[in-house]
Amino acid sequence: MFTFTRLSPATSRDHVLVGLSPMNGRYTPEYIRKLIYWLQPRFRSIDVILPGFEAAYTLVAAGQPPTQAVRRARRACRQVRNPAVQALADLGVPDAARHVTSWTRLHANATYRAALIHSRRAYLTDSRIRRACRDMTGEVVRNAAAGGREIDAADIDIAVRYVIAEIPLFIHGPSLFGATESVFVYHRPTPLVTAIASGDCILTAEPGQSWAVVTEEENNHGRTGTSAALPVPSR
């Protein structure tokens, strides 16, 4: 069972975009299967998004040689992609593989490309976006760094491309996936989504975009966990 907490008041069940983090230990094949089984029947359509090649920057910034970082990132993406495709296929979603995509592939979409340029500009010009991107990046790189290696600003400069490349998915879900309304779901609220949802930054979500946090309820002596996320109005 999962708890679904919307970060915006929208209640549409038109489309759900599920963000998977290949290098986060939470996303085991079993967890992915359960998550998709739980979400798919609750929405008219579903897509699953994986990181593009920028995922390797996290490992490079954490001290790994680039070719090794790329190999590990590709393997990690495969390991979350396959159970996601299988789960959608088992649920009868036609052409299941088409619904599990990386944002590298989304470069074929003019909306994604334009939004990425806009996102890069936002990172350079909006202090709140910049801070959110760097905070998120620092956390991910520190988790990936072995042996308590210190992370410096140059490491963040490398790896922040990962987070920036994800921004278009937070603001243009409906256009990118041909939906009227789209909710982006992740396992926790992130500073970036909170900044965008607040409307107090240079990035604005297109109409129909909303966000939600999905957490797994732990069956712990009958008690269930809840998400700490607070509703945030969409602009």
């Binding site: 593009g52 790329v70 990386s102 592939r105 989304l106 074929a108 979409n109």
Partner: peptide, 8 residues
């Protein structure tokens, strides 16, 4: 750096 299937 990605599978050729992922190229856009």
């Amino acid at each position: 750096a990605v599978s050729e299937r992922e190229l856009p």
